[in-house]
């Protein structure tokens, strides 16, 4: 249950973390080169086979729904209310004074798919990389060992603190704290929940620093690592592919510009409705599960 890492032995799992970091950065580069929802969509979709091949489908689908909630809000709210560009170009008139505008929808769609593609790439990275390997990669990039460890331990502390928070919540409920009370009371309840959390976290960190010292953390000189990793043929192949894509994308951008094809209303409507459909699937799934829980 440490961090979001999912154990596996796929191609992606075997890549060097450094390769994967470059991969995430190149995806970010791609989606910011162009201002074209279709392109961003293609990038997102082309990442899905990698998700599947890495055996990360289930954890990915579980996590990505939070992104979809965000994306749903972005495309809907921007499409309706963002006053950018030509506000007279309407794509979908809902009521007399409520309509999805063409330029605003483009913006919303571009932002949405940017979030989805970058989010997917990042999830691929986080889910296929053991936290220790990430720290090692940073050390290889000449990040000081202590800093790399700090980043690593943050990753590992988050789930621990999460578990701790749950226990504290239970301990306070056991003292008749009504956590299901109304909003104002809930805000007041933050103190009984957070005070012990902070205190125990500080205690834990303090203790951890002593444990580390006892095991020679601050000794000087080069350190070895239990998990060794090397950049091999696989990484070079992958990096070459990324470089080729990047080259192609940059050339395309220089020649054609930020928008590849004219963006039609049909494209925008598909993006909007598509996101709505995915969101409602997640929503009904959630509803169905809660109803079933109530019934049982």
């Amino acid at each position: 249950m440490n961090s979001m890492y999912v154990q596996g032995n796929s191609f992606l799992h075997q890549l060097d973390p450094r390769t994967k970091i470059l991969f995430v950065f190149s995806i970010i580069l791609f989606v910011f080169l162009f201002y074209d929802p279709m392109f961003q969509f293609l990038v997102t979709v082309s990442l899905l086979p990698i998700v599947f091949l890495s055996g990360l489908t289930t954890p990915y689908l579980k996590t990505v729904k939070f992104m979809f909630l965000l994306v749903f809000l972005i495309i809907t709210v921007h499409g309706l209310y963002n006053p950018m560009g030509d506000v007279t170009k309407v794509t979908w008139q809902l009521t007399e004074n409520l309509s999805f505008k063409h330029d605003a929808l483009i913006y919303g769609a571009v932002m949405s798919f940017r979030i989805l593609s970058i989010g997917t790439a990042t999830l691929l990275f986080v889910m296929s990389t053991h936290p220790s390997d990430l720290a090692n990669a940073l050390v290889k990039w000449k990040v000081p060992h202590a800093v790399a460890f700090m980043i690593l331990s943050t990753f590992q502390l988050i789930p621990i603190i999460g578990r701790e928070a749950k226990v504290i919540m239970e301990a306070q409920q056991a003292r008749c704290l009504d956590v299901k009370a109304n909003m104002i009371q809930r805000v007041k309840h933050l103190i009984p929940l957070f005070a012990p959390l902070f205190i125990t976290s500080f205690m834990r960190v303090h203790q951890m620093s002593q444990v580390l010292e006892c095991r020679g953390f601050s000794s000087t000189g080069p350190k070895t690592s239990l998990r060794e990793m090397t950049i091999g043929f696989r990484d070079y192949a992958f990096l070459t592919a990324i470089a080729l894509f990047a080259l192609a994308a940059i050339t395309l951008r220089a020649v054609v510009g930020g928008t590849l094809l004219p963006i039609t209303d049909f494209v925008l409507m598909s993006a909007l409705i598509g996101i709505w459909i995915v969101c409602s699937i997640y929503f009904f799934d959630f509803l169905w599960k809660s109803v079933r829980k109530k019934v049982v």
């Binding site: 301990a171 005070a195 012990p196």
Partner: peptide, 22 residues
């Protein structure tokens, strides 16, 4: 019934008292 309500009947002393002290 909610935990808060049941806790008036059933007191639960947690193993680690740091978790409830604030």
């Amino acid at each position: 019934h909610s935990v808060a309500k049941l806790s008036a009947k059933v007191g639960y002393v947690f193993q680690n008292s740091n978790h409830q002290t604030f």
